[in-house]
Nucleic acid binder design. Structure first.
Lengths: 328, 328
DNA sequence: CTGAAAGCGCTTACAG
DNA sequence: CTGAAAGCGCTTACAG
């Protein structure tokens, strides 16, 4: 691979200065004489020249890369959000680098350092884990955006997500209205704001009188499967299960299917997120619809049209709705 | 956001030259006196310094970014491969930028230009579309890697994937051995090498005597759903369907479920890829297992340990196997 | 073991 | 409308 041509090569070939070539490629072509412009165009074409983002970024002290950290690469809702963000950023001329923190604080911190090294325009954290390094970065930079999990106490940064408490509350209320019995909550890890808010809302929505069995697990199909197996092996009861997200619900579903159970006669199941897959592979799953594809525009606006920092963090709270299907 | 500290700031604070600071951060710490090293470490720590990848890339004329283009962000097999590649590249200290070409030649060409601008270390194309720009880039650069779809005639670049003809052939043979009747092939677009190889293999494996109805559609659930509806609405026949990938199979499955059909009594269904979701949401689907998670190491080795270019393109052909479950 | 200096590819304020 | 020159943050061959 021979080295790619530079402004200099184009300048030489077209007989102008590098300044003119640069103007041509950075949207200042209007200030160039038509003849000059033509010859620059031809030279660039002949050489196959594309300006180096690296040179440009260095010169402008500003890169066009945005880093997104996801907590779990296998979560489909997370993937939907990432796709939405990538699309929205592209319209502003930005690239997105996706990295998987895998719910591991060490890995997350490593990736944060990488993002810093790339001088990322913004760092978007889906499901951040509270670590000293994250706190320090939030203090030094103001380009962190928290998605789906609120920043830890004392960390000042914008948050984009839904009102998890209210959503959980609506589900609890629905369970109460339908008079579902043997209620079970399988929530995600309690240290994540989304998990505990969903759970608390659910409990409050159900009301005090109802007793609820509570399990806590990872936000994964594996986690839901394990809890499901334990729960369903014990008794032949018709449980009414609220899961912390759809992935957990898929896992419970698998455990139920293995025991030949049918919905909603043998088991009531409620998910959370309504990732795009449901429509195709889990059209039976009642769940809370979170508008994954509205996250992109919301986040991109935060990145590209930052408000007055004096006003403090600009949170964006998106709407949700209950999506009722066969399983509940 | 104040500007991040530079080598210079660290050098000033620790009373050494920028050269020494740079040595500390680029793995040449062994050649630094212990005292000096200590003071550099402290200064960097105090300032929260992380070296700029941009400065480094410019100086070394070599970036650590690899771009991966995917043909369809909603394809789960593609996503599995992307995750595998990202992980493998990370171990070599490289970042991956994921971009969605959405099976659109214009969009692909735009993204190729972006990748060029980033001076990507390598450009990985899952499911490339043959365009003049792609050909020209393949000619100028030697850092293109084709995955799952072979490069077009005359384009010299490495290919990583399975032997699609052989896999299709095995499925055809299996259909013949089981004496499946009313055979149907729903293949992906014919212009993609993978599609036509899978189809041809299938036909050859079935043997001349069998007639096969053939549909061609996009590699998506939507595509499979539409064909499925058309096919299943016509007659009450037990079809034996080989799909070009799992996504198509999911779509056919949905159409069948809507008509209350059951597998394999009412319909025989065979997919292709065995993406990770099958285990959880489609454990009934017989398919061809393609080892998505072996792609990462294979591709990373191509990127980071390039062989002698004189030897020509270094193709890597991965193994596959038939995964037989309930649907066939 | 350490530093001064050059240069990677760009953009832009300044001067003409 | 155009160019010469400075400088963005790094690394390294060279000299000491």
């Amino acid at each position: 691979m021979t080295k790619p041509p530079t402004v200099r090569d184009v300048a030489r070939l077209s007989g102008v200065s590098t300044a003119t070539v640069s103007r041509y490629f950075s949207g200042k072509a209007g200030a160039i004489a038509p003849d000059t412009l033509e010859s620059v165009r031809n030279a660039a074409e002949a050489l196959g020249y594309t300006p180096s983002e690296i040179g440009r970024s260095l010169r402008l002290s500003r890169s066009r890369v945005v880093v997104m950290l996801v907590p779990d690469a296998t979560n489909h809702f997370t993937a939907d959000v990432a796709a939405s963000v990538e699309k929205a950023l592209k319209e502003y001329g930005l690239s997105m680098v996706l990295a998987n923190a895998a719910e591991d604080p060490k890995q997350q911190d490593r990736l944060l350092t990488d993002a810093l090294g790339l001088r990322a325009r913004a760092i978007i954290l889906q499901g951040a884990i509270d670590t000293p390094q994250l706190r320090e970065m939030a203090g030094r930079q103001n380009n962190l955006i928290f998605v789906n999990r609120r920043p830890a106490e004392g960390v000042l940064a914008p948050y984009v997500g839904i009102d998890n408490y209210a959503a959980g509350h609506d589900v609890g209320r629905y369970f109460r209205d339908r008079e579902y019995e043997n209620c079970v909550a399988i929530s995600g890890p309690r240290e994540f704001s989304g998990s505990s808010e969903r759970l608390q809302g659910f409990l409050d929505g159900l009301g005090r009188k109802t007793t609820v069995r509570h399990f806590e697990t990872a936000f994964t199909m594996e986690g839901g499967y394990e809890v499901g197996r334990e729960l369903l092996s014990q008794e032949r009861t018709r449980f009414s299960v609220f899961c912390g997200n759809d992935m957990i619900a898929y896992g419970v579903h698998r455990a139920a299917v293995e025991r030949q159970m049918r919905f909603p006669d043998d088991l009531v199941l409620f998910g959370f997120d309504d990732n795009r897959l449901n429509e195709w592979l889990a059209p039976w799953l009642s769940t809370v619809r979170v508008p994954a594809f509205d996250f992109g525009p919301a986040i991109a606006s935060l990145v590209c049209e930052p408000g007055d920092p004096a006003e403090g963090a600009a949170n964006i709270i998106l709407p949700f709705e209950l999506k009722l299907r066969d399983s509940a």
